[in-house]
């Protein structure tokens, strides 16, 4: 592994986590970010390693737990925090919030209605193939989203149409507070996908380098063959399902389970692997984290300073046309009286 790539992965890991920790910290009592948020603390590893593997022409279609992928795609942190504040400088102009965080600048789209974005990747990948672009569609979903019917329509069409899509299923074993076992007898979503004749890969581990090498070959293959590939990663969210508040007081998961995952936190693992060997490396780690903190802190100041949008109702329609110079003159009659129709069987 090149150290420069490892550094980038670490920077991503830390930026994703720190951003969320800061949001959680500053959420109350200020209450200036007034929208539901699904944090991905604990689940940063996949977006972090994808960071160096993505090109500008790739697009992402993500489920609600999307912050990590937005950051890994180099989305502006200023615009992200401003969006959560509901300000006009936000990535969506302040009208959508965290649940539907999107940015045309980086071709990143998310939504909180389960599995819709997963299906949208079909169109994104189709467009890239149609226009002979290098990019691929990246589609992110949770284990819960994998239970919706549209998922199976999409997987079938992706293979049948040979579309360049990287499917990622972040299996964190829970849909809100319901365990996977309570919802299905097949607890590896990727097993269901195999039946569509799609290549699948299952990853369980906390070493970002291992995941990077795996994803590097998969992404290359998708770019070369223009065929979809489905990757399931076994992961865990440390935070509650939604909001800055924890939800472990509901006792829907065991302390033992939580502690096991926190002990194997990929970020802690990586810090030890990369930076523990010398003082110089430790200083480098601090430098990366200080820089990340500056980015985040600046974003909060940017959001505070920004204004709320003045209007919203004019955004429902674009109300423009491509290539149309003028409309047909209504006062000109089209011609003869319309001839009647003769009903015909189907």
């Amino acid at each position: 592994m090149q150290f420069s790539i490892q550094k980038e992965i670490y920077k991503n890991l830390s930026l994703i986590r720190k951003t969320q920790e800061e949001i959680i910290k500053r959420y109350h009592p200020a209450d200036k970010m007034r929208c539901p948020m699904h944090f991905c603390v604990g689940q940063e590893i996949m977006p972090a390693v994808l960071g160096p593997l993505m090109i500008d022409e790739d697009s992402i279609y993500s489920h609600h737990r999307s912050h990590g992928y937005y950051i890994a795609k180099k989305g502006s942190i200023n615009e992200m925090i401003a969006e959560f504040y509901g300000k006009e400088t936000g990535s969506n102009g302040g009208l959508a919030g965290s649940q539907e965080l999107s940015s045309t600048k980086i071709d990143f789209y998310s939504g909180t209605i389960l599995s819709g974005a997963f299906a949208m990747a079909l169109g994104g990948a189709f467009e890239k193939k149609y226009n002979q672009k290098k990019g691929i569609g990246i589609s992110v979903i949770g284990d819960g989203g994998m239970e919706e019917g549209i998922v199976y329509e999409s997987l079938n069409m992706a293979t049948q149409m040979n579309l360049p899509i990287l499917y990622i299923c972040e299996n964190n074993s829970y849909s809100t507070h319901t365990t996977l076992k309570q919802r299905t007898l097949e607890n590896k979503p990727s097993n269901r996908v195999k039946n569509f004749n799609m290549k699948t890969t299952y990853f369980d581990g906390n070493d970002p380098d291992k995941l990077f090498n795996l994803m590097k070959s998969i992404v290359k293959k998708i770019r070369d063959t223009k065929k979809p590939h489905f990757v399931e990663i076994n992961t865990y969210r440390f935070n509650g399902h939604v909001g800055p508040e924890g939800d472990d007081h509901f006792n829907y998961r065991s302390k033992k389970e939580i502690n096991h995952w926190i002990k194997n936190d990929p970020i802690k693992f990586y810090e030890k692997k990369l930076f523990s060997k010398s003082r110089k490396l430790l200083a480098l780690k601090k430098k990366i984290n200080d820089k990340n903190f500056k980015i985040i802190d600046r974003a909060f100041r940017f959001a505070e300073k920004s204004k709320f949008p003045k209007r919203y109702e004019n955004n429902n329609f674009k109300a423009t046309y491509k290539n149309v110079k003028k409309f047909y003159n209504n006062s000109i009659s089209f011609g003869t009286v319309q001839e009647d129709h003769k009903p015909k069987p189907y």
Binding site: T104, Y109, A119, G123, E127, I150, M157, Q160
Partner: peptide, 16 residues
């Protein structure tokens, strides 16, 4: 295929 939902999302994704 007979997949109206996926067809519709294909249209959306492609039209962006």
């Amino acid at each position: 295929p007979n997949s109206e939902q996926a067809e519709t999302m294909l249209a959306l994704g492609a039209s962006l």
